[in-house]
């Protein structure tokens, strides 16, 4: 009996250690004064200062944030429209086919998505002259397409969970379809929209593979810069950069769940 009491806490500790030990060590080593990544040389924040002086990193970070913001917003709008059509517009031809196709990008290998988008952009440029070359615009388009699938799946499940009779009630009480959407549907699915947007944002922020295919000169995103830096050997300033990213994402997620918790109350 006594051993049984310890089994649960021990498994929990082991499981979470497995998940978080790498991240914790990364955070700790980002404050390492030593130039050697694996040798502790005392506490220091010099790598952070070093990071902010690195123009290449700062430029890539700003670019990544911009791309993530724009493409997650576009993905939110398109994904929401798509799920509204699929859930609320009754039965129409090819509905289940479309419904399946919208979630296909979720399981599509990124290499294939990236390659096919690259081919698309190249042949579009040949045919219409747009997009001219590859850069921010192509990355935004690429990120919007795959993020949209995630948003659509999240919003779709929230919409189908939602009691449709409350929309009918609003209509019955004098609201036209547009008012029903803004007064009732939107507030009710708002938590799903927030989490869909956040998911799209983080997905766009840490995408390496697709961005590598569709980016052009001068439009390297942060993950691309980190990856190329690491190929030359892990330097401590990469640790600092990663720690900052973890911090930003953690704050965003904690903030979002706090908002949703408040909503529920």
């Amino acid at each position: 009996m006594k051993t049984k009491r310890y089994i649960l806490p021990i498994t929990v500790v082991l499981g979470f250690t497995f998940l978080y030990a790498p991240i914790v060590s990364l955070v700790i080593y980002s404050f390492n004064a030593s130039k050697l990544v694996t040798v502790w040389g005392g506490f220091s924040i010099k790598w952070y200062a070093h990071l902010f002086e690195d123009d290449q990193v700062m430029h890539a970070a700003w670019l990544s944030l911009k791309i993530a913001f724009i493409s997650s917003t576009l993905a939110l709008i398109l994904g929401t429209i798509a799920s509204l059509v699929l859930v609320r517009f009754g039965k129409f031809r090819f509905k289940s086919l479309l419904s399946g196709m919208i979630s296909a990008p979720l399981v599509m290998p990124e290499v294939i998505t990236g390659l096919s988008l690259l081919l698309l952009f190249v042949s579009m440029e040949l045919l219409f002259g747009w997009p001219a070359g590859r850069g921010i615009v192509t990355i935004i388009i690429a990120h919007t397409t795959f993020c949209m699938a995630f948003v659509a799946v999240i919003v779709q499940s929230r919409l189908s969970d939602m009691d449709e009779s409350i929309e009918e009630a609003a209509q019955d009480l004098g609201a036209s379809s547009l008012w029903v959407f803004f007064d009732i549907t939107l507030p009710v699915i708002a938590p799903a929209l927030v989490s869909g947007w956040l998911l799209a944002f983080t997905l766009s922020l840490d995408d390496l593979v697709i961005a590598s295919f569709v980016s052009g000169p001068g439009s390297s995103t942060l993950p691309m810069v980190i990856f190329s830096k690491v190929r030359l050997g892990v330097s401590p300033d990469v640790n600092a950069l990663a720690t900052l990213m973890i911090g930003i994402i953690a704050i965003a997620i904690i903030g979002a769940s706090f908002l949703m918790f408040q909503k529920k109350k």
Partner: peptide
Amino acid sequence: FQSYALFP
């Protein structure tokens, strides 16, 4: 409505 359909 049977489910009351109150706006949550």
